[in-house]
């Protein structure tokens, strides 16, 4: 038997037990109880598959860069990743082409417009940023591979490296996205007309619909966030999911454009790089420290999870997580991971 594997098994078991008795668990249970009472918002209905979500689903997961996991609620419940996929695919485009080339194809400017708006920066001939639908389609266009199956495989492998487990596409969601994605299709063709994307536009749209249909749970989101927080290396598998030099590219657009047209206020009030999706997931990153996953399908009019936004707001205020926090004197999230 491989002794080093046994030792790391033992270590992960010890870490698991320490996480299970950490004060942070009580804090998350408290937040979960408090925000379970919030019934505002509505489940997304623009594709039939999303409308099937149970509005009561609610989970909070926090994963530290050293592998501690504290999570409460329905953290195993699978859902389609939707827009949370966008920064990760942007990372893949950066790795495939380098920063300079990617920035000629998509800008990094917040729009203040809704996620599905058909507004393109005609002056520079680019979509505004990789986290609005137009920009995400232009980003998907940059995912390379010798043929379409290989592009899909590479995409799934990238997500699997971030999540630390093999992820899959929900075919029903994919077919549903494809059948109803007229607006995205229109946008893609408009961009083709402007020469913003290559002429394999149908294939790229398929890839985009696939990337939105990847199944994850709240735990996965926290691990993906922790991988970014850890400089691109998954804290459990120790596998690199993204080149270290590109981590800041993802985090800075998440901070400025990650929360649809709430992004400006988010950066001001919460100050944590984050990305939300219409299935109710949010991934948030505290660089060098934690990944946070939140899942609750009740959305506000902008498409962000109502409970998710409030939990992030409270976590940020209570534990001084704002990126520009200076001189915070309270107890930190790290303090709450160790028994008093």
């Amino acid at each position: 038997m491989d002794n080093s594997a046994n030792i790391s098994d033992l270590q992960s078991l010890i870490t698991k037990m320490k996480s299970a008795v950490a004060p942070l668990r009580d804090i998350l249970n408290g937040l979960h109880a408090k925000y379970s009472a919030v019934q505002e918002g509505a489940v997304a209905t623009y594709i039939p598959e999303l409308a099937k979500a149970d509005p009561n689903w609610f989970a909070i997961s926090i994963v530290s860069v050293d592998g501690q996991v504290v999570e409460v609620g329905n953290h195993q419940q699978l859902f389609s990743i939707q827009s949370v996929s966008k920064p990760f695919v942007f990372g893949m485009a950066l790795e495939d082409h380098g920063r300079e080339h990617v920035l000629t194809k998509v800008s990094v400017e917040p729009t203040g417009e809704a996620f599905n708006s058909i507004v393109l920066d005609e002056r520079s001939n680019r979509p505004f940023n990789p986290l609005v639908n137009s920009g995400a389609i232009a980003t998907a266009d940059l995912v390379e591979g010798r043929d379409f199956p290989q592009r899909v495989t590479r995409l799934l492998e990238m997500f699997s490296r971030f999540a630390g487990r093999s992820v899959h596409i929900d075919n029903t969601v994919f077919l549903s996205e494809r059948a109803t994605g007229h607006r995205n299709r229109a946008m893609a063709h408009l961009m083709l007309n402007f020469g913003m994307v290559r002429d394999r536009v149908e294939e790229t749209l398929e890839l985009y619909f696939q990337q939105c249909s990847v199944l994850v749970n709240c735990h996965d989101l926290a691990v993906m966030g922790a991988t970014l927080a850890n400089g691109g290396v998954n804290p459990f598998t120790k596998e690199r999911a993204l080149k270290a030099e590109y981590v800041k590219d993802l985090l800075s657009i998440m901070l400025s454009c990650g929360m649809y047209d709430y992004a400006g206020e988010w950066a001001y009030r919460v100050g944590i790089p984050a990305k939300s999706g219409v299935s109710g997931g949010i991934v948030a990153v505290v660089p060098g420290k934690f990944g946070i996953g939140i899942f609750s399908p009740l959305l506000d009019p902008r498409g962000n999870s109502v409970r998710g936004v409030r939990v992030c707001q409270e976590l940020s205020q209570r534990f001084g997580l704002h990126a520009f926090e200076a001189g915070f004197t309270g107890r930190t999230l790290q303090d709450e991971l160790a028994r008093k």
Binding site: A20, V21, R25, D26, N29, E71
Partner: peptide
């Protein structure tokens, strides 16, 4: 979830 045992004890 082993964490539930912790919650239950408290």
């Amino acid at each position: 979830d082993i964490g539930k045992l912790n919650d239950g004890i408290h």
